[in-house]
């Protein structure tokens, strides 16, 4: 591996880690607060990407406006899921998971009927790029994803530590009944968590739309990635999710570059199986949640 290829792979891995972190953190947040495995998380990502397809590629609105609309729209889809599905099924341990599978199929079909099955081609919003000394290239399109991940996740971290909502969110994740006794509204907390979690997936999808050629079935690989990250990181651990997203982003990108993509996926799944067998609580423990 030449120095140039190595640096380029590092740059690519940073980008991969960023969007994986955005997706995984939302996934963990939803699980931590509501105890629901949101199987439709990949399709929320897909919905974000298609918002950009519709607003930016088809109608010609500015890219960043489309991204912001994507965040809000997908966040609202999350609210719909919470109010319509997860809340009525709160007492049914597998109910939320099953309902989210149903929701996933509906979102997929809507995308299929609205846009067709074939890949969408989203033109890049900018041709600018940073060229490093060794010749490695970072396009602005990818830089946006990295910046968004750093910015949004830091904002989320401050929100969770400093604001009253953040405290109630963490309280719910730790002990739901105790939180209720303290006068915290479970429903309101769940709505906030769901909006943020879904919104993060939506932003990831919207920002990566010009880079990945959206299809209605793009969510599948995303949900697999999210599973790998939360299992390896430890279910319910936000810090673990971020760290493992970085780790997995690098492992996956390097294996893809040096061997091939299928092997990279196999490596990721085996990593997850190994963690499940040896230390089911994940590398970063389950004691501290959200």
């Amino acid at each position: 591996m030449t120095a140039e290829l190595f640096l380029q792979t590092v740059v690519n891995a940073t980008y991969a880690a960023s969007y994986m972190a955005l997706i995984a953190v939302g996934f963990v947040l939803i699980f931590g607060v509501m105890g629901v495995i949101n199987f439709a998380h990949g399709e929320l990502y897909m919905a974000g990407a298609y918002t950009v397809v519709a607003l930016y590629a088809d109608m010609g609105f500015p890219f960043f406006l489309a991204v912001v609309v994507g965040l809000i729209f997908v966040g609202c889809l999350g609210l719909v899921m919470e109010v319509g599905l997860f809340r009525p099924l709160r007492d049914n341990p597998l109910g939320g998971l099953i309902a989210s599978i149903g929701f996933l199929l509906i979102l997929q079909t809507v995308a299929m009927m609205g846009f067709g099955v074939r890949m969408e081609n989203v033109p890049p919003s900018t041709q600018d790029k940073i060229v490093f000394l060794d010749g490695a290239v970072l396009t602005y399109q990818r830089l946006y994803v990295i910046l968004a991940a750093v910015g949004l996740l830091s904002a989320l971290w401050i929100f969770l530590r400093k604001s009253k909502f953040g405290w109630s969110l963490r309280a719910c994740a730790q002990d739901r009944e105790a939180a209720v006794l303290q006068g915290i509204s479970i429903n309101q907390t769940a709505r906030i968590a769901m909006f943020i979690g879904a919104g993060l997936a939506g932003v990831a999808g919207a920002l990566t739309a010009p880079l990945v050629s959206p299809t209605p079935f793009m969510g599948h690989s995303v949900i697999v990635t999210a599973f790998i990250i939360i299992i390896v990181g430890g279910i319910g651990s936000l810090e673990g999710a971020v760290l493992v997203a970085i780790l997995y982003g690098f492992v996956h990108t390097f294996v893809t570059t040096m061997y091939d993509g299928t092997l990279a996926n196999i490596v990721g799944l085996l990593l997850m199986l190994a963690v499940l067998i040896v230390k089911p609580t994940g590398l970063f423990g389950a004691k501290e949640r959200a």
Partner: peptide, 16 residues
């Protein structure tokens, strides 16, 4: 082509 949507909707209705 609406099969997945129908299945999804039926799944949700039945679990609810």
């Amino acid at each position: 082509e609406m099969r997945p949507m129908l299945y999804g909707a039926l799944l949700i209705v039945s679990i609810l």
